[in-house]
Simulated scan of single mutants.
Amino acid sequence: MSQQPTTAIPDFLVDYLAQRDEQRVTETLNMLADLSERELLLVKEAAVMGWVQGIRHADQKIPKDRQVLFTVADACRSFADLYPTITGWTPAADEDVEADR
């Protein structure tokens, strides 16, 4: 069986992806830092319980609370309009939010 040749990812693309990962982490940490202490506790508890409920029958190890919180907050940022309470998203003046739901 012959092997297919592998093509290395260009350095500029590797650098770009690393830069975007770092930017995403920074933006998520900043979003969490902007929450009040009470908001942060509520979000953490809901995120952790949601995670636990989601995998309670799976053979997975549950990560530390802070990793769950970051992962869930980062996922919320990806769909800011679906989670406006956490992300602070507001519709643009010309958007009809109700028509989308």
Rank of each mutant, 00 (worst) to 15 (best):
K61F: 02
K61H: 07
K61L: 05
I62D: 00
I62K: 03
I62Q: 04
I62A: 08
P63C: 14
D65Y: 08
D65Q: 07
R66P: 00
R66M: 10
Q67G: 05
V68H: 04
L69E: 06
F70M: 05
T71L: 06
T71G: 04
T71R: 13
T71A: 10
T71P: 00
V72W: 00
A73P: 01
A73T: 06
A73C: 09
A73R: 03
A73S: 11
D74Q: 11
D74G: 10
C76D: 00
S78K: 04
F79H: 10
F79R: 13
F79S: 14
F79V: 12
F79I: 08
A80R: 06
A80C: 07
A80D: 07
A80E: 08
D81F: 03
L82V: 06
L82D: 14
Y83G: 02
P84R: 13
T85Y: 14
I86N: 01
I86M: 08
I86L: 15
I86E: 07
T87C: 04
T87W: 04
T87R: 05
G88Y: 12
W89H: 12
P91W: 12
A92G: 11
A93S: 15
A93N: 10
D94W: 08
D94E: 14
E95W: 11
E95M: 12
E95L: 14
D96I: 08
V97W: 11
V97Y: 12
V97G: 02
E98N: 10
A99D: 11
A99C: 02
A99I: 12
A99L: 14
D100N: 13
D100Y: 09
